[in-house]
Amino acid sequence: MPAISMKVNGQAVCGEVEGRTLLVEFLRDKLGLTGTHVGCDTSQCGACVVHVDGKAVKSCTALAIACADADVVTIEGLAKNGKLHPMQEAFREHHGLQCGFCTPGMIMAAVDMVKRLGKKLDEDTIRHELEGNICRCTGYHNIVAAVKAGAASM
């Protein structure tokens, strides 16, 4: 099995993978970073979204080996020195989560959205930009509110 190394949440990590090992499998099974979830097998639900080299991607649809040497950030790497990221804070403040399963992907998608589009986001933009993330609990109402507030405070 080939060994790969990459930076995950600021730490250098390495591990053996098969060619077929998905990035999400590497993160969950090899590194124990179980905050990144798998909610579907057709690359649609977005529960697995992480940042690879600064961009939001679906880690269920990327080979780990293809991400060798990349800089990966997962939900576990968002809070810094025990201080929550403003987007995490906003999800709690605005009740943007219920069961919590889609939440890591939602938050990672939201942070990426702000990076690309800036801190001032209107409701239509947020809703449109969330089309790669499915939530079954919240009806999106409070997620939209959370993203808007989180963006403003980033």
């Binding site: 979204v49 961009k55 959205m113």
Partner: peptide
């Protein structure tokens, strides 16, 4: 095309 994450890859 797709969604923002798909468009990144």
């Amino acid at each position: 095309i797709g969604d923002p994450h798909v468009r990144h890859r």
